[in-house]
Design a protein around this nucleic acid. Sequence first.
DNA 1: ATAAGATATGATATAACATAACACCATAAT
DNA 2: ATTATGGTGTTATGTTATATCATATCTTAT
Lengths: 157, 157
Amino acid sequence: MPDDIDRIIQKSYEACASAGVKLTDKRKNVLMVLLGSSTPLSAYEIVERYKIQFGETLPVMSIYRMLDFLIQEKLVHKLETASQYMSCAHIACEHQHETPQFLICDRCGSVKEIAIKKHIMTELERSIQSTGFTLAHQQLELHGVCKHCQDNSVPAN
Amino acid sequence: MPDDIDRIIQKSYEACASAGVKLTDKRKNVLMVLLGSSTPLSAYEIVERYKIQFGETLPVMSIYRMLDFLIQEKLVHKLETASQYMSCAHIACEHQHETPQFLICDRCGSVKEIAIKKHIMTELERSIQSTGFTLAHQQLELHGVCKHCQDNSVPAN
DNA sequence: ATAAGATATGATATAACATAACACCATAAT
DNA sequence: ATTATGGTGTTATGTTATATCATATCTTAT
Ligand SMILES: [Zn+2]
Ligand SMILES: [Zn+2]
Ligand SMILES: [Zn+2]
Ligand SMILES: [Zn+2]
């Protein structure tokens, strides 16, 4: 979990303000739930945690809508290969958000978000050029085993 | 759709035989359904097409089991980002099956399966080395727009 | 201040995707 | 022939996601 949630929330408010949209209390709370989790969560898991953390049971429909909003504003990412949602690791960074690459540990479920190296993206695009296909390059999801799980031989989940 | 289904089916029988498993009639039929489709299909869509093509309504549970089998034998791939299944494009090739890369057209839904270029895989692995993460590299799913759709401006689906 | 409009959320229903558990039957091994 | 294995059927349930309409809240113009 990020060590400076307050600062991330502050940055999120600013980002939404400059985009001309509103980070409502509930949207902020959903983001807080994700920021407080060490692994990505499904929409239904967010409902459960939201209830625990904020004492209110939101309909899952609302959670999906808030997730849509947060994804739109690039504050949250959806892992398509896992049907789970996680807060962006770079909300409080100053740099522009680049094409993300997710390293998903198949043992502990933790996910590390890094930016795709520029030259790899270039190579990827070149390699598919002959097919005429044009990349929309949203993101890359790579599965494997994280350092911690390799060191500790944590059983698969 | 592949132009030589008979040959692919023949190869599939041989692959299963040498793996010591059985390609039953129904499993073969499921594979035929996928071979006959220009786009990947969901398990439920396979049920529908199976009925049309073979006049028998299979329970979706059985379809999932047959898909598991076909995936195990590398005759079928699952697109995780789409929850859909497609026959492997290289069943009748002689070469070893490599880490596949799927180019998924977000307009027409067609998918092209190609092998990941060796040097790109190497670069990818090198780029994440500092994180200590070890790739399981199952497959890469890339979204975008295919040549045909770019040329024809087919509306998004 | 109030009404009109826009945005956000709630409620309900249902669709779409997937697995668990157990029963039954055919074929293979003994 | 008997038992073991594998394949399929049946039923139930779990999980993820969307559609639709209602209600609440917030803005803005008058
Ligand atoms: Zn991010
Ligand atoms: Zn791990
Ligand atoms: Zn393949
Ligand atoms: Zn296309």
